[in-house]
Design a protein around this nucleic acid. Structure first.
Lengths: 117, 117
DNA sequence: CGTATCTATTGACAAATATGAATGGAACTG
DNA sequence: CAGTTCCATTCATATTTGTCAATAGATACG
């Protein structure tokens, strides 16, 4: 699983002489770091990244039956990928009869993009 | 019941009515998708993400001996994380005597940020 | 009703990952 | 030289991930 994140104080240099002058601290809150990492991790697969690209370029809701033949993986594998994106809050889905439609929730991507800039 | 879902051909809807009108294609090149996924995957861990944050906020080169005590993991584990970031092209490092200094290579993060926007 | 279709889930497995102890290697110190 | 310090690497292990076959669930149709 993802690693824990406990921030302990700075150690002192062995011989008294500092290896470098700055004392650095992470100033991302733990919760934010984990949220960003969650989004990034969900994007960390070529299939999922391409899924996002497809959904985003289409700017609408896309049926799963359109997505499946675009990739060289089984239907169940694609379903797993879509679920990962859904759990990470990057996409949402909607059922209409037999079909399921997926679409991008832009907020998550914007969060990460903002953090990167 | 035999799910003979071959993935190449687009399946047609049962009653002839399309489930959705658009035919979608991924227009990210495979290589780009894999590169973006590589960057995102490297960021997909709270420790590595916080490392990036620390290095970036400092806007200079930071000694590993400053980084290790910030996290609740062993020195070797942190070294593993730094290597992952290095291999992904997100950070670079420089040796000075006993110490190793790490710093962010902004290009990789900008690539991903640009892709997200 | 029964059957077919679409999607999600379960179960199983190999591969990848995160982690730390132990070790190696380089460079400084006395 | 011998000892010490910092960092990287190797090795081992537990967990997570990606994948597919099979199945389940839901809904449409005749």
């Amino acid at each position: 699983m993802s690693s824990e994140l406990t921030l302990t104080p700075k150690q002192k240099s062995p011989n008294g002489e500092p290896c470098c002058e700055p004392v650095v601290y992470p100033d991302v809150e733990r919760a934010e770091a984990e949220r960003m990492a969650e989004i990034a991790k969900a994007l960390g697969d070529p299939i999922r990244l391409t899924l996002i690209d497809v959904l985003r370029k289409h700017a609408g809701k896309v049926c799963v039956c359109e997505l499946v033949p675009l990739f060289d993986v089984s239907q169940s594998t694609l379903s797993h990928h879509l679920k990962k994106l859904r759990v990470a809050g990057i996409v949402d889905s909607e059922r209409q009869g037999l079909w399921a439609y997926y679409y991008v929730n832009p907020e998550a991507l914007e969060e990460l993009s903002a953090w990167l800039s």
